[in-house]
Design a protein around this nucleic acid. Structure first.
Length: 908
RNA sequence: GGGCGCGUAGCUCAGCUGGUUAGAGCGCACGGUUCACAUCCGUGAGGUCGUGGGUUCGAGUCCCUCCGCGCCCACCA
């Protein structure tokens, strides 16, 4: 054969294809919004569809979480683009303060054997920028490889000049509104990272520890209060002992003076309702400097605050003999000394929640420290409102409850970090301590000059801002805010915020708060939250367990399309996905199926006669596939509308494989071989159906579909201009081809589908029996079909039936009725059709009776069920349409039962 | 302590606004190599949808109880 089939590999070659196709898309500018504000065809009546990418850490390497959001967002973007909506997907990356600094520090130690303190802030930052330039591109390259159709010309980095300007602007505005304050507060201190972290960056783990019971001696006597603690070293910072005001046991102690063990520092015994008399000993040591609750008690009772731990969690001078010791060492030593002094009562095993740093993993120490905070309530209020009144919609819906819950109990946000890599806090101090908050150093100097009447030395605050502060501005800072850019005017508010539910508070909530605060508008209309990717057994992927699946390896082995399809179809919004490689493999097979179906179509195109002689006339199969295709389009549209992307993909998969490929293409081969007009119409319809499937699949599996589509376009154009998609000429590329529209129903569809379904049933019934009776697969047998009224319709399909069921065509009889059962045949029933196969010699009549008897039994069971149903209240209460459906089913079963009975009789 | 989610075939999971014979992939069993595909084709076995109750003509789907699992938030020493 001279056709193209043999020039194409049987296996889809994704490796070469992906790179070539992506380069083609990018070069052609398909990733740019069609109605770019800079362009001339800007149509203000069409709202663009905009996504800001969740910026990956600049030092990161692609993991499945990235693969998930990229696939999902690319799906949405491609879908909208094909629908003709101007789409913008803004890419970028995040400087990721702590993560990057840690990584660079490690690298620095390894290569130059120097710490960041040794080389100093300035050199360290240079070094880090160098690092960023070198490795920052890795992640974006990997994202491209996933097929991400971002507008790469708009790529942003959170430490870019523009974005840094936005950060300063935001800080200044909050400061001027009085929503930023600085002060000593109890914060979460990470001794490993030597910085403060926010509440969200602390993770609590249930851990086995000890509860230490000891005696708090009362001054001037032998009395003592029994007290329990999990952290004995904090005893050194106690400034009170508290009991419940109504606790009868301890009434006498209230107002007395207790002595801190070892230090003998006198502290008051106070009464506070916070103390739970039931817990522990019922007496509580109060350490305002190292415990959030105690801090509050301290405020109520005006207690002094003693800090006994320093930045590295070593005991301070306040700790007397333990000064300089590490916190755990001090814990041990102090406890030993207390034992020696007879102050120890007991220690018991105790499991409790231990706070650990999300990044470093070490135990977080609550400490008093001077930090910058955002007064968050005034920002949270409108953010809560925006979701409550529906301006922002969260998918899946149940996450709105989670959002409310958090927003309603939100605490002030500690935004300063004692790091170097990040946005430096735009505050400058004069030598006398006066603060100037300014957008730039120049502005700070101007302000200082106005304030002092002369130029002054200024020093900028050494701290940097929490990374999430800049991320919170992302949807608008990437569009040029605070400037009133064309992009801001046209693309903002953005449309879709697609991200993992794990950063709902970290990121999404903050973007909503800051978006409303700075732009006065919501930053996005919809929040779509996907789940986490776990391993096959539902465990988190981690290097220590060794169950990490690397998306790059998966792409190498199975192709990007397979990975994307798996992530997209295997996930439900908000729910975690257990990824199994078996699944990816199955979807690689699907990609290959698409490829091979494409090869067949390509091979048949040249066999299409150029000009049909008569008006088109479709076969039953033609009408069926066309009707089903249109149903599919309608379904997919509905599902996309409701963000049910996975279900949409599944339906396309099923249609493509088990209807189009398994049935229609098989039949199309036969119809094409008839030649003439039939061949023409068949190829025409087949190409159109394939074209539509490729369009529907494109957002899921962009590469294989684009490749095939290009080839189809070329093949049809060289062959016949008549072979074009119904809605106009072939587009330039599939990525910008119009999304299919379902043809309006004309009324014949359901009947056609029903008739074809019967045909399928006939074929299956025959195949089934052949398999059961071990009829040689290649052996063609004869058959007689008794089809009553349907004989005419089915008669037209004799070639199809013959081919699919391996019946010898000239021995296939299709008749309306039969007086007598054909000699030596075995009888079957498919719906209202009786089938006789000349295989009597292969079967035992008794066995046949059993088989038919079983059939009859099943059919009668259905009849009974339906009759009862229809006799009951169902017939009156259920909608007419549903009842009618059941009646038709009943009629069908009754007919089948008759046929089976007749056959049983003839066996007697 | 508060909030949320899950429990469907041996395994991993779908199942939207309740519509009456519950689906897929993998695995399993049997059979298949000429003309798209063994990364394939055909046929089949396999589930009282965690438990108990309720609403309804009708419940895997809605409501409640209980059992089991998971997650998030929260200051119990």
């Amino acid at each position: 054969m001279e056709n193209e089939l043999f020039t194409l590999s049987k296996t889809y070659d994704f490796k070469g294809t992906e790179e070539r196709i992506y380069a083609m898309w990018e070069a052609a500018g398909y990733f740019k919004p069609q109605n770019d504000p800079a362009g001339l065809d800007h149509d203000p009546s069409i709202r663009p569809f905009v996504i800001s990418i969740p910026p990956p850490n600049v030092t990161g390497e692609l993991h499945l979480g990235h693969a998930m959001f990229v696939s999902m967002e690319d799906l949405m973007i491609r879908h909208q683009r094909m629908k003709g909506v101007p789409t913008l997907w803004v890419p970028g990356s995040d400087h990721a303060g702590i993560a990057t600094q840690l990584q660079v520090e490690k690298h620095l130690l390894r290569t130059l054997e120097e710490s960041r303190e040794e080389i100093g802030r300035e050199r360290f930052l240079e070094y880090t920028w160098e690092w960023k330039r070198k490795y920052g591109g890795i992640i974006t390259d990997q994202i491209r490889r996933l097929g991400a159709s971002c507008d790469w010309d708009r790529e942003r980095f959170t430490l870019d000049n523009g974005l840094s300007r936005a950060v300063n602007e935001a800080f200044v505005r909050l400061y001027e509104r009085g929503l930023i304050y600085r002060g000593p507060r109890l914060i979460n201190w990470s001794p490993g990272l030597k910085t403060a972290v926010s509440d969200l960056e602390v993770e609590y783990h249930e851990e086995q520890g000890k509860l230490y019971h000891f005696k708090y001696r009362i001054q001037g006597g032998d009395d003592f209060l029994p007290v329990a603690t999990t952290r004995p070293e904090t005893i050194l910072g106690d400034t009170a002992v508290a009991v419940h005001p109504e606790d009868e046991r301890y009434q006498a102690f209230i107002g007395k003076t207790a002595l801190v063990p070892i230090l003998d520092r006198p502290i008051p015994v106070i009464a506070d309702a916070y103390v739970d008399p039931e817990f522990g000993t019922g007496a509580l040591k109060v350490t305002p400097g190292h415990d959030p609750n105690d801090y509050e008690i301290g405020e109520r009772h005006n207690l002094p605050i003693v800090s006994v731990l320093d930045r590295e969690a070593r005991v301070t001078e306040e700790g007397g003999p333990y000064a300089g010791q590490d916190r755990f060492e001090a814990r041990k030593n102090l406890w030993e000394d207390m034992k020696a002094q007879g102050l120890v009562i007991k220690e018991e095993p105790y499991s409790h929640q231990v706070p650990r740093s999300q990044r470093g993993g070490e135990i977080i120490e609550p400490m008093i420290s001077t930090q910058w905070f955002v007064d968050i309530k005034p920002l949270a209020e409108p953010a809560l409102q925006a979701v409550q009144d529906g301006r922002i919609r969260i998918v899946p819906e149940y996450f709105t409850r989670v959002y409310y819950n958090w927003m309603e109990n939100i605490q002030d946000w500690c935004i300063s970090r004692q790091l170097w890599w990040g946005h430096r806090i735009p505050i400058w101090y004069a030598p006398d301590g006066t603060m100037f908050c300014a957008r730039s150093e120049e502005e700070a100097h101007e302000k200082a000059e106005v304030h002092f009447g002369e130029a002054t030395q200024l020093e900028q605050d050494p701290d940097v801002l929490d990374t999430w502060f800049s991320s919170g501005l992302w949807p608008f800072s990437t569009l040029g805010w605070p400037d009133e850019t064309a992009d801001m005017a046209y693309f903002y508010p953005t449309t879709m915020m697609e991200t993992g539910y794990d950063i709902l508070f970290f990121w999404v909530a903050r973007m909503i708060m800051m978006g409303l605060a700075f732009t006065g508008e919501i930053p996005f209309e919809t929040v779509y939250l996907h789940g986490l990717i776990r391993d096959e057994q539902g465990r988190k992927m981690s290097k220590t367990i060794g169950n990490v699946i690397d998306p790059l390896t998966v792409m190498d082995e199975m192709g990007t399309d397979a990975l994307r399809f798996t992530l997209l179809v295997g996930s439900t919004p908000g729910k975690d996905t257990n990824l199994s490689l078996k699944r990816v493999e199955a979807n690689r097979n699907f990609a290959n199926k698409i490829w091979n179906a494409g090869r067949l179509v390509l091979g048949l195109i040249p066999r299409c006669p150029r000009e049909p002689e008569r008006e088109p006339r479709w076969t039953m199969a033609d009408g069926w596939i066309w009707a089903r295709l249109n149903q599919l389009i309608a379904q997919v549209d509905r599902l996309f509308e409701g963000h049910q992307y996975g279900e949409a993909g599944r339906q396309i998969y099923d249609f493509f494989w088990s209807e189009f490929a398994d049935w229609y293409l098989e039949i199309a081969k036969l119809q094409v071989s008839e030649g003439g007009d039939r061949a023409h119409y068949t190829v025409d319809l087949m190409v159109r159906t394939m074209d539509t499937c490729l369009r529907l699949l494109h957002p899921f599996t962009p590469y294989v579909t684009e490749e095939l589509w290009q080839r189809m376009k070329k093949a049809t154009q060289t062959h016949s201009e008549k072979l074009i998609p119904e809605d106009g000429p072939w587009a330039e590329a599939l990525i910008v081809a119009p999304w299919p529209a379902a043809a309006p129903q004309q009324g014949w569809e359901e009947g056609n589908i029903a008739r074809f379904t019967l045909l399928q049933e006939i074929v299956r019934t025959i195949r089934n029996l052949r398999a059961e009776k071990n009829v040689q697969p290649g052996l063609k047998i004869g058959a007689t079909l008794v089809a009553g009224d349907l004989a005419h319709d089915i008669g037209h399909q004799s070639a199809t039936i013959a081919s699919l069921a391996k019946i010898q065509e000239d021995h296939l009889r299709i008749v309306e009725y039969l007086n007598e059962k054909p000699e030596g045949s075995i009888a079957l029933v498919a719906g209202p059709v009786e089938i006789y196969l000349p295989l009597a010699e292969m079967v035992d009549p008794e066995e046949e009776k059993l088989r038919l008897g079983k059939d009859l039994q099943e059919t009668e069971a259905q009849i009974n069920r339906l009759q009862q149903l229809l006799d009951g209240p169902f017939a009156e209460k259920a909608p007419e349409k549903v009842v009618q459906g059941e009646r038709e089913k009943l009629a069908g079963y009754l007919e089948s039962a008759d046929k089976i009975r007749a056959q049983l009789e003839s066996l007697q």
